[in-house]
Design a protein around this nucleic acid. Structure first.
Lengths: 143, 143
DNA sequence: TATAATTATTTTCTATACGAAATGTTTTCA
DNA sequence: TGAAAACATTTCGTATAGAAAATAATTATA
């Protein structure tokens, strides 16, 4: 019985933490005028350079259709560029637009620091505990 | 530097766990033909009985507008009933529809067991570790 | 008591998410 | 080679999610 309550506690805790993180992240990116998933896309493209839609989708772990929608909005604001491949015309490549250079630095720092900052109050021991807990969580879920 | 990597690790871990949970929950509720947020609403109404929209919103920790949309869909399928209060006509009460009785038992079990089952593979020690990690996480975030 | 302030809920707008169907291309192989 | 299979991406339909504006009703107060 004790463990049952613990499990319900986990569900609630997880959901709460999730919400706090999202709220905080959103606030950070609001400054740059970009949403969290959009930041993931741009961050990934910045780090790894041009790639296929499907590759992007795999890296961020979002479905192709979701990525497609995010790209639509980013493309409309000319922050990314889609290019149909010449060799295999089924493929579409995406990359960060050159005129993104302006915002680039500010954005890059946000990406790097937002989550970073969120946990800055934690001691190494606490960080360790969190990592251990999440790893345990993941291990159990994967069985 | 070590802690910086740990923090990035946390971000990724958390996101992964989040996704696994959602996927698994969704699969459970697909059988009953209901989504996760919808199950939260129905579960809460079943447990506590009729209540105000705002109360429901507070309990589930979702914005009023989100709750409103979820209720729209549930009401359309006649799973819940909205009633405008007579005393204070600003207030709307919601309750689970009587004809929900059929699905009720099956559903109730799903609600209770879905997350439960998800963690059934965990030993008490592991469950403890997860709780500790999440609590630490939450504490840090709240500073 | 008329008006302002407050409270409660709904509507509207924008952005995710995802599965399934649709579309367009390329490759296989009978 | 020509149809079928495989592949890559987009479109469509449904459901969240939340902020802000709109609506409606109640309460406070000048």
């Amino acid at each position: 019985m004790e463990t049952v309550n613990k499990k319900v506690e986990i569900a609630k805790l997880f959901s709460e933490v999730n919400k706090i993180i999202k709220r905080s992240m959103r606030k950070s990116f609001d400054d740059v005028g970009i949403t969290i998933p959009q930041s993931l896309v741009i961050g990934t493209l910045t780090q790894f350079g041009e790639m296929k839609i499907s590759e992007l989708s795999r890296k961020i772990n979002l479905s192709n259709s979701t990525i497609s929608g995010i790209l639509d909005r980013l493309e409309k604001r000319q922050l990314v560029i889609r290019t149909r491949s010449e060799e295999d015309r089924r493929i579409v490549y995406v990359k960060v637009s050159p005129n993104f250079g302006e915002i680039h630095k500010e954005f890059h720092e946000k990406v790097e620091q937002s989550f970073e900052h969120l946990l800055s109050a934690g001691t190494p021991e606490e960080i360790g505990k969190i990592v251990e807990g999440l790893n345990t969580f993941k291990k159990i879920l994967n069985d």
